[in-house]
Design a protein around this nucleic acid. Structure first.
Lengths: 246, 246
DNA sequence: CGCCGATTTGACTCAGATCAAGGTTTGTGG
DNA sequence: CCACAAACCTTGATCTGAGTCAAATCGGCG
C-alpha cells in the first residue's frame, strides 16, 4: 500500500534539537549537550491511529510520553465501566505520570486522531536524571504542572456552572494554541462533543446548546469542529463572573 | 504561659526510625542507613493550630510536607475567591507537590485542627535523591499517588450523584483509617460539614440530609463528628451501583 | 444565661439531565 | 458514483436531583 510508505516518511525520527516543541517538552531549558543526550534515549514509536490506545489502565508503566502531533485523551474508568476524561493532550504535552504510584497505569490513553508520540523509557530516565541535572528539575516541573492542572479541573467540576465550564475549556484551548504559536482565536477541536461533555461533566445536549448560545451572542463562531473566538473578553468575563460577591 | 511548655514537649523531634507512620511516608521501604540520612534532613517545625496556614497560594515552594498528626486541607482558589478543597491530608500523607511546576504553590494548605508536620526542604531533597536511590523512587511513587487520587476525585465530581459521592468519601476515609491501624468503621471527622460539601461539590444541606438518610437506613450512625459505619457492604453497593448497565 | 457558629429540616425552584426526534457528515461496499 | 449505515450533532419538550432560601435547633463557651 502506498499508505505504508507515507507513514514511514512521517516516521523519520525528529530529534529534540530540531523539534519546535522542545521548549514545551522534556528538553525545556536544556543546552546543546543535554539535547544530544536526550535524543539518544527518546524513542519514536509508530504513529497511533484514531482510536488506538497508547496505554491502558493496568498496563505496566514503562515510559512517559510526549505528544508530537495529533491529540491524545486520558480517562479514568470507574468500577462500573463509566469513564471520566481527565485530560486532552496537545503536541508538546506529556502523559503517563499516572502510573508512577505503583508502576502500573491507572488510566487509559487513546488517540483522538492520527497522532505521533515520543517515548522516554523509565529505566533510561532514572539513569539520565543523574547525568542531566536539568532533567531532574524538569521532571519535577512536569509533575507540578500535572497536579496544578488537575486542580484546575477539580475547581471547574466542583464549582462552575455549565456555561462557565465551557467558556473555561475554550479559553484553556486558546491559550495552549497560543503557547504553540498557533492562532489563539481560531482552531479545530480534535474531540467530538461527547468527549467535551464527558470532560466537563455535563450532557452532550448541554454542550451543543451552549455552543449555540455563545454563537448567538457573537462570542464565538462554530462550524462543526472549527471554532473561532470572536469576543475573547466576553469569554473571560463569563469565567470571571462565577460569583463576583465576597 | 503554661501552654507554651506543653507545645514544647510536643515539639521534641520524633525520628523517622521511631515513627510508626514511616511506611506510609517518605521513608517507605528504606533500610536503617537510609533512615538515618532522612532524619538528618527532616525538620519538624512548630505545630500548627486550627486555622493556621501551612502555606498559601503564591508562596515560594521551599519544601514538601508530611502530616504527623492532625489534619490539613488543601484548596485551590478561583479568580473570584471561590475555593475548591482538593484534599484532606491525614497523618503519614504528603503535601506540597502543587508547587513543583513553577516553584510557587498553587493552592492553600490549612490545618483543620492542631496538627504537626515534618518538613523536607527541597534544596536538601535534590541532593538526597542522589545519595538515596530509594528516595528518588519513593518521590515518584508519591507523585503518582497524588495524580491517581486527583483522578479519582475527578471521577467523583464528574460522574457521581451526591449519594455516591458521600458514600465514596466515607469509604475512602475508612480505608485510610485502616491503613493507619485505626478502627475502620468508627472515626471522627476532622472537618465541618461545610468542608465536606465543598470537597464533594455539593451544598451543606445535601450533606446533612444524606447523613440523615444513611442513618435512617442503618448504614451509618452519626453523632456530630463521630461516624460509625454499621453496614460496610451497603456503602460499597451505593458506590458500585453508579450504573450497573453496560 | 445568652450569644454565635454549626447543623438540621422544610418548602420551593431551577439548571441541566433525560427522552425523543430529526438532520448532517463520513465512511464503506457495490 | 451512489446507496446505505453509522456516527455525530442539534433542537425541542419534559422531568428531577440537588441547590437555594428560610427558619428552627443544637452545642460550646465566655
Amino acid at each position: 500500500m502506498t499508505n505504508l510508505k507515507r507513514i514511514d516518511i512521517n516516521h523519520l525520527k525528529v530529534s529534540c534539537k530540531q523539534c519546535n516543541l522542545r521548549e514545551l517538552c522534556f528538553p525545556h531549558g536544556m543546552n546543546d549537550d543535554e539535547l544530544t543526550n536526550m535524543d539518544a534515549v527518546v524513542d519514536q514509536p509508530q504513529p497511533l491511529h484514531k482510536g488506538d490506545f497508547l496505554y491502558r489502565d493496568g498496563d505496566e508503566n514503562v515510559a512517559i510520553y510526549a505528544v508530537r502531533s495529533g491529540c491524545v485523551k486520558t480517562m479514568t474508568e470507574s468500577p462500573n465501566g463509566e469513564e471520566q476524561i481527565v485530560g486532552f493532550h496537545l503536541p508538546g504535552e506529556l502523559l503517563g505520570l499516572d502510573g508512577f504510584g505503583e508502576g502500573v497505569h491507572t488510566c487509559n490513553a487513546l488517540a483522538l486522531e492520527t497522532s505521533s508520540v515520543c517515548e522516554l523509557p523509565l529505566e533510561k530516565l532514572e539513569h539520565l536524571c543523574h547525568e542531566l541535572p536539568g532533567l531532574q528539575k524538569q521532571m519535577r516541573r512536569i509533575m507540578g504542572k500535572e497536579v496544578a492542572s488537575d486542580h484546575q479541573l477539580l475547581l471547574l467540576l466542583g464549582k462552575m456552572t455549565a456555561e462557565e465550564r465551557l467558556a473555561s475549556f475554550l479559553l484553556s484551548l486558546s491559550s495552549r494554541m497560543h503557547e504553540r504559536h498557533w492562532k489563539e482565536n481560531e482552531f479545530n477541536l480534535s474531540m467530538p462533543r461527547q468527549d467535551i461533555a464527558n470532560y466537563l461533566g455535563m450532557a452532550v445536549e448541554t454542550v451543543s446548546r451552549l455552543f449555540a448560545t455563545f454563537q448567538s451572542e457573537n462570542i464565538i463562531q462554530v462550524d462543526r469542529r472549527h471554532i473561532t473566538i470572536l469576543d475573547m473578553p466576553a469569554l473571560k468575563a463569563i469565567v470571571g463572573d462565577c460569583k463576583k460577591d465576597k
